[in-house]
Design a binder for these strands. Structure first.
Lengths: 335, 335
DNA sequence: TTTTTAAAGCGAAACGTTTCGCTCTTTTTC
DNA sequence: GAAAAAGAGCGAAACGTTTCGCTTTAAAAA
C-alpha cells in the first residue's frame, strides 16, 4: 500500500541507512537530498510511526490523565495542551477518571500499556500513589494545577493561596470588612484558596468568621445554595468571594433572584476568567489564571523530560495570577 | 527490560508461534496453557502493542475529531465516548479543531499519520470534505451529533428538527401562541431546531414571525442579548424556546435581571439537560438528548466497522429525545 | 605532497510481534 | 483397521523502521 522507505531506496539507489539519516535530520549530500525529496514527493511517502516506535521505543504520544473532562476549566486547559502537543508532533491520549481514584489508577496502567512517552496529570487528589506505576515504568509525569502531596513530581500551577489572598486584599482595600466566601473544600485548590482568604483577613487584623463561610461541593448548585445562605444572614456580608467558576455562576444566579444589586448592595469577586465573565452584569472582578501558559509550560517541561531521559530533581513552575477589574466591587466610604 | 514473548519461550520451551496463538485466544493444550500462564505471571509479561501493531496494522486507538473541546456538551460526550472505548481496550486520541475548518483538515491528516483505527468526528460543518482523506486511507469514520451533507458517512445523532417541534408543540398545547425563539444559525443543529420550531407553529396554523426570532452565535453572550431583545418587544412572547445550553444559560441570566418571573410572566423551554438545569429556579422544561447512548452507539458502530473491514452502505442511527418537565411553563387560560 | 581528520554512505542486525506453510499426532469416519 | 480430517505445534519470514560498526571519499593540516 503506502510507500515505505524501501521504495525510496529503489527510487534513489541509496541505502536504507542514508535515507533514514535524512529523515531524522542527519547530513546528506545535496544531490542525494534532492533525490530523496523528489522520491518522497512522488511516492507520497510518510514515515510509519509504528515501525519507528518499535525500534526507538517512542510513540510520540502523551497521555493526559484528567480527574474530569466535563469541567469547563479542564476543557480549556485541554485545548491548550492539545494544541501545544500537536505543534510538536505529539498526539494526546486522554483518560477521564470521572473523579474516581480507582478509575484513575486503571487509567495510569492503560496509558503505560499504550506506551505513551509521558503523562500530564490533573489528578483526583494530591495523593498521587497511582502515578508511582508510571515512575516505575520510567515514564515522565508532569502535574498541572494540582501538586502532589510529597512534591515528588514536576508540577505547573499557580499559587492558589496567594491568588486568593490577593483577591481578598483587594476587597479590603476597597473598605470591605464583612467579606463572605463561597468555596469548595472537596479539593486541593479549594482548600488553598480558603487559606488565602484567611491570610488576607488576618493580615488586616480580622479573623475569618465561620458564619461568613459557605463551604460545599465544587458545583453550580452549591454556588447557588451558598449565596442563598450568605444573603439570609441577619448581617449580610458587603462582599463575597467565590473561589471558582462553577461556584461563581451559581452564586450570581442566586443573587439575581433577589432584589439586591451588585455592586450597590453587595460586591462580588470571582475566580477563573471563563466565558461567563462576559455575560454577567456588572462585569465581575476576578482572579484570572494564565490557562494558556499553564498548558504550554506543562507540555514544554514534559517534552524536555522526555528528551533528556535521565530523571532530575522534581521542579515546580508556579505562574502568576492577577485580579482583573470589572464593575462588581464597590468602594465603601470608610472602614 | 520488560519481558518479551521470547522470554516466555525460554521459560516454557514452546515456540513463539504457539505462545502468540495463546495470546490471541487460540487453542492450546491445557498443560501448555498452564505453563504459559505461569510464565506470564512470573515475568509480568505484557504484550507490546507497538510490535503487534506493526504486523497487524492496528493500533487499538481511535481518533476523536471535535470542533471544540471547550463546550460543555462535548465534554460530556467525550466522557462517554472515552469510557466506552477504554472498556474495549481502545485508546482515544483527541484533536480539537477550535471551530476552524483548516485546523480540522490538519487534524484529520494528523490522525491518519498516527494510524488510528477509526475516527469519531464532531465536524465543524456538514461539509465533510476534510474526512475524504480518511476515507481514502480506508479509516472508518462515524459522525456524531452532526451528519454530513451528502450522508456518505455513518452517523449517530438525534432528530433535532423533530425534537424542537416536540418542544414547541408542548408550549402550544399549554395555550401559548406568541412563542419566541433564541437560536444559533451558525451551525447545523441550530438550523434544524429552528426549522422544527416553524414546523410546530405551522402545524398549529401559525407562522413563525421574524420579530420573535433572535438568531445569533452559539454562546452565552448571545443568549443574554437575545433574551433582552425579546423582552423589549412591545408585545413580548408568552414563552421562549432556547435551542441550546449556552443560549439558555445566557437567556436565563438576562431574565433574572428583570422584574419578570418565570413562569408567571413568561414561560421557558430549554435544550440539553446539563448541570445548569438543577440550579435554575424554577426547574426548566427542556429537551433532553441521550448523551450516553449517543457516545456508546457511536463507539459500538465504529468498532463494528473496524472489525469487519469491508465498507458497507453508510448508516444513520437516530436516537429519540424527550421533553423533561420542570416548572417553567405556565398553562395559559385560553388560546 | 603526505598524513590526519571529518563527512557521508553502506550492509546487516535489531525491535517484538503475527502469520504462513508445514509436520506430526490424535481423533473420527466408514 | 485404513484413510481422512482435525488439532497442536513449529520454524522462518515478515512488518518498516533505526542504529551499529565499518568503508570510502573528501577536506584540512602538516
Amino acid at each position: 500500500m503506502a510507500a515505505t522507505i524501501r521504495d525510496i531506496k529503489e527510487r534513489t539507489g541509496l541505502s536504507l541507512a542514508t535515507i533514514s539519516k535524512y529523515l531524522n535530520g542527519g547530513n546528506v549530500l545535496p544531490e542525494n537530498r534532492i533525490k530523496i525529496e523528489a522520491a518522497i514527493k512522488e511516492l507520497h511517502y510518510e514515515v510509519n510511526e509504528i515501525a519507528r516506535g518499535l525500534v526507538t521505543n517512542r510513540t510520540r504520544t502523551v497521555g493526559v490523565l484528567a480527574y474530569s473532562v466535563e469541567s469547563i476549566f479542564n476543557g480549556t486547559l485541554l485545548r491548550h495542551i492539545g494544541n501545544s502537543l500537536r505543534k510538536a508532533g505529539y498526539g494526546l491520549m486522554i483518560c477521564d477518571s470521572c473523579d474516581d481514584p480507582k478509575i484513575e489508577a486503571e487509567n495510569v496502567n492503560f496509558l503505560i500499556g499504550k506506551k505513551v512517552d509521558g503523562i500530564i496529570a490533573l489528578p483526583v487528589s494530591t495523593k498521587t500513589d497511582c502515578l508511582k506505576a508510571a515512575r516505575k515504568a520510567k515514564i515522565p509525569v508532569v502535574l498541572i494545577d494540582r501538586p502532589s502531596e510529597d512534591a515528588s513530581f514536576d508540577c505547573v500551577r499557580i499559587d492558589n493561596r496567594r491568588a486568593a489572598a490577593q483577591a481578598v486584599r483587594f476587597l479590603l482595600q476597597n473598605g470591605h470588612r464583612r467579606i463572605g466566601i463561597i468555596c469548595s473544600h472537596s479539593e486541593y485548590t479549594g482548600e488553598e484558596r480558603y487559606k488565602g482568604y484567611g491570610d488576607a483577613l488576618r493580615e488586616a487584623g480580622a479573623e475569618p468568621q465561620e458564619g461568613l463561610c459557605a463551604a460545599g461541593t465544587h458545583s453550580i448548585e452549591f454556588g447557588f445554595e451558598g449565596m442563598g445562605r450568605l444573603l439570609s444572614l441577619k448581617e449580610r456580608p458587603t462582599a463575597v468571594f467565590m473561589t471558582n467558576y462553577e461556584l461563581a455562576l451559581g452564586a450570581v444566579m442566586a443573587l439575581n433572584r433577589t432584589k439586591l444589586h451588585c455592586p450597590e448592595d453587595i460586591s462580588l469577586m470571582g475566580f477563573d476568567d471563563l466565558i461567563m465573565s462576559h455575560v454577567i452584569h456588572p462585569r465581575l472582578h476576578m482572579v484570572v489564571q494564565p490557562m494558556k501558559e499553564m498548558g504550554e509550560k506543562a507540555v514544554e517541561l514534559l517534552l524536555e523530560r522526555i528528551g533528556s531521559g535521565q530523571r532530575e530533581m522534581a521542579m515546580e513552575i508556579v505562574l502568576g495570577t492577577r485580579v482583573s477589574e470589572g464593575d462588581s466591587v464597590a468602594k465603601l466610604g470608610e472602614k
